[in-house]
Amino acid sequence: MIKIDKIEWLSEEAKEAEVYISDENFNIICFACPLDQDVGDEVPLPLYTLHAEHIYLLKDEKVFSIEKEGTGFAYSLSGCVIDKDNSQVKVGEFILELDSPLPGDIEIGDYVSFVCARIDIC
């Protein structure tokens, strides 16, 4: 289960926030607008990526990983493809829907690596 750990409002009036979420193994800082949840609430899935790119097949590794890139919202991730038509990848308990199509040689059950500029809660 993924829960909201912390909220930092960018604009309470616009319901725009940085949202800190976690499962048992990973933490992510997401962008949300509008945010209608509170700390402790369960996070609706899937999460959505912005500018997902450099998507490639991991042939020898079958691992989940999440690494923050710099000081913004960018991340480098790896996980298992669970829905090719909707470009959905599972990373730990997180389900991410990429805003870019998966390459044609990638199938359900394959592990992929990618980067994205931001992860959104909708």
Rank of each mutant, 00 (worst) to 15 (best):
I55D: 10
L58T: 01
K84N: 10
V63W: 01
K6W: 06
N25A: 13
P103M: 00
T49N: 06
E24M: 07
F114T: 10
P46W: 00
I119Y: 07
A14E: 15
I106R: 05
P44A: 08
N86M: 11
E18S: 11
I7P: 05
D60Q: 13
Y75E: 03
D23Y: 05
D60S: 14
K62G: 00
P101F: 02
I55K: 07
I82W: 09
G109V: 01
I4W: 10
E42I: 12
E61I: 07
A32M: 04
E16P: 01
L96I: 12
E42L: 12
V19Q: 02
V19Y: 07
P46D: 00
Q88F: 10
Y48W: 12
S78G: 10
I119E: 04
E13V: 12
V91C: 12
S78H: 08
I108V: 13
I119H: 01
E42H: 11
L47Q: 10
A32H: 03
I7H: 10
E97N: 07
L35W: 01
G104E: 15
V91M: 05
D110H: 06
V89W: 05
S76Q: 14
L98D: 01
T49I: 04
T49Q: 00
D83K: 01
S78L: 00
Q88I: 14
E13Y: 13
D5E: 14
C80R: 15
V115N: 14
L10Y: 12
L45C: 07
E8G: 00
P103R: 08
E107I: 03
G40M: 03
G92E: 08
D38M: 11
C33Y: 15
T71A: 09
C80K: 15
G104Y: 03
F31Q: 10
D5F: 01
I7T: 09
P34D: 03
H51N: 15
E24D: 14
L96E: 06
I95F: 08
D5W: 00
C80T: 08
V81P: 00
S113N: 06
E53H: 14
L50R: 15
D5M: 10
C122E: 13
I29L: 14
Q37L: 15
P44F: 04
V43Y: 03
Y111I: 05
E16T: 14
F114A: 00
G72R: 05
F64E: 07
D105I: 03
S22Y: 08
F73P: 03
K68C: 07
E61Y: 15
L50T: 14
G109K: 03
L57E: 02
V89P: 02
E8N: 15
E16Y: 14
P44I: 07
E13K: 13
I7V: 12
E61S: 09
R118Q: 12
S76E: 15
A32C: 15
G40K: 00
I29W: 09
R118C: 11
D23S: 02
G92N: 06
I7N: 09
K62V: 01
E53W: 12
D41E: 09
D120V: 00
E12K: 14
Y20V: 02
V81G: 05
P34R: 09
E16A: 11
L58D: 10
P44C: 01
F31N: 06
Y111H: 13
S113Q: 13
S65G: 10
S65H: 13
A52L: 05
H51M: 12
K90E: 13
C30N: 05
A32V: 03
K62Y: 09
